[in-house]
Design a protein around this nucleic acid. Sequence first.
DNA 1: AAAACAATTAGGAAATTACTTAATTAATTA
DNA 2: TAATTAATTAAGTAATTTCCTAATTGTTTT
Lengths: 107, 107
Amino acid sequence: MDKVFEALASTARRKILAYLGGGEMSAGEIAERFEFSKPALSGHLRILEEAGLVARDKRGQFVYYRLVPDRLANTLYGWIAEVCPVAGPLKRESRARARGRTAGRHR
Amino acid sequence: MDKVFEALASTARRKILAYLGGGEMSAGEIAERFEFSKPALSGHLRILEEAGLVARDKRGQFVYYRLVPDRLANTLYGWIAEVCPVAGPLKRESRARARGRTAGRHR
DNA sequence: AAAACAATTAGGAAATTACTTAATTAATTA
DNA sequence: TAATTAATTAAGTAATTTCCTAATTGTTTT
């Protein structure tokens, strides 16, 4: 669990997860979307993988990464339920509102 | 939002939040539960406060801290909904299971 | 007013993190 | 087989984080 929160601490890594939410991508495709170097990206991907948040799949000379949504959901929901069980999950509309308030659009 | 995830990256800070989930505590009471120095704790509390996750209330010579559950819930639920909207909040029993799997008991 | 107590700020050292370029590994194409 | 492309590992540096002790601020008690 420590590794999950550690992984989520980086803006770049959270952005990677958001990209992968739209479907699998190769390391190179992800790299195109960032300013920093490919080795730097590779490091971020390794941290996400070791946290269990993404899975890799090498096909030919490409390495495709995909989100592991259950890992994300189980860890966060599980932990928050432990800290403040009173704050239950929001209803769909409330989540939409929360999304608008707390996070900008990507891209 | 960055500050929230940054704040949650530390095991000690997550533990502080868990303590505060049980009700407000003074800085000193929290400090007793950790090995490190009071100034170190003070730093952690400042980071949590700047993230909006805790609120302080000075009464006499004591400073009491309390959890701000909405901030925690809104940020995490909001973000996760954006990344993988498909993974909806778990039902109560599933959350209990997830809790058992991903996090040890405190103390 | 002086002493004691709670909490924070200040200053600085040690460890960790994030990034760079260069080199390497592995798969494809000419 | 040689050259190209994708991705990673290696090595080193700069910035950040985390923690300590000492000093400071503010409040209560004697």
